[in-house]
Nucleic acid binder design. Structure first.
Lengths: 196, 196
DNA sequence: CTGATTTATTAACTTATGTAAAGAATTTTA
DNA sequence: TAAAATTCTTTACATAAGTTAATAAATCAG
């Protein structure tokens, strides 16, 4: 049975190979959290200085504007999440991250990461690869938003998420928001697709 | 009078301080280009392995889809450009970059950069900061697209670009595309704003 | 299990945007 | 400088999406 820290260490292997001492330097700074459904990991307007690894559960990222919420991203187990932009820019968060299910998390301070950049060259590489990875995700998402119609985005979304059984874990309204449309509009699109 | 390489070295100071030997390792790999208006730096579907520093001029990034073009980004002097995603992912370019004016460029191979990562720790830091910088730009752009209406995006665009006299260098149709709308729609928005 | 709450669908109506085409204005270039 | 090409605006029409509200379905909590 794999422990939570093992799971996190395994995730980091996507980016770099860590020796035991390198890993332990990070490991000793980790803290564990559990968070029930519908709670906040990041709150718009507040400073966060922590990043998280999602051991189990799901969350969404959203912006609040004029009283309504625009969901722009989803997170599932085995991924990092948090206000990376806010940490980098040293600014209050422009968005909120809310759990969609009960979550198990590993938390670490952003400062821990930057301190590791100084102490171990391998973390410098990790930091670069992490930023590159996040850049790639955003670049592809932006391209989709600007080049596909809402209907095309929906079809693409289900085709990539159905395999990972993601879709049934996310309420429709958040998917609509993710696609840049209203829940009403998504209902109509689903109808159009079903009818054809 | 500042030389082109000095200009580039000055730009890099945003990210890291380079010693003379560190800088010279990069400098000796640089090549200079000039490119007339309306020419391509990157072509959708092709592999590029070069990145560029724009000494003088302007360019746009666009995706072609169903015969029409979606412009998603503009570049001006004193900035890096190129298919960074393609370089990272080792994939053919998903978009094109076309000059909007006659351009003066400094070119360098992406492999030169990754080789420098290995040779000098400072370039590892540069690589991280560059990716972080690009991530921040995309993250903010995505938030704008998903939370603002086309009219709000236009107002924001002119307020930030008017100072830098950028707006008069870009044809309206490309700005429309950047905002995610058609030129016709942008004309109407401009009319609405002027009337009110 | 059942009532309460949340979520999804549907309908009616409004509005903003897309499309196509024509004309005006601007820019390019020969 | 004048003709050609490109770009911008306007009009008319079609359509997809937003809004509001009502109903249906699913989920949650006691």
């Amino acid at each position: 049975m794999e422990s939570k820290t093992d799971q996190f260490r395994g995730y980091l292997k996507r980016f770099v190979e860590l020796t035991d001492p390198e890993w332990q330097a990070l490991e000793k700074e980790l803290t564990f959290r559990t968070l029930p459904k519908k709670r906040f990991l990041v709150q718009q307007g507040q400073r966060t200085k922590e990043l998280y690894f999602l051991v189990q559960g799901a969350a969404r990222l959203y912006y609040e504007k004029d009283g309504d919420e625009k969901t722009t991203y989803f997170f599932f187990e085995n991924n990092l999440l948090g206000d990376y932009l806010g940490c980098l820019a040293g600014q209050p968060s422009a968005m909120s991250i809310q759990t969609l299910e009960d979550c198990e998390l590993i938390a670490f301070r952003y400062e821990t990461l930057t301190a590791l950049y100084e102490q171990f060259p391998v973390y410098q590489i990790f930091g670069r690869k992490l930023a590159e990875y996040l850049f790639m995700g955003l670049d592809m998402r932006l391209a989709e938003l600007l080049t596909l119609t809402p209907e095309e985005r929906y079809l693409k979304f289900i085709s990539t998420s159905i395999k990972r059984k993601i879709i049934e874990r996310i309420p429709q309204q958040y998917i609509a928001s993710y696609l840049g449309i209203t829940p009403v509009s998504l209902s109509r699109i689903r109808r159009r697709i079903a009818d054809s």
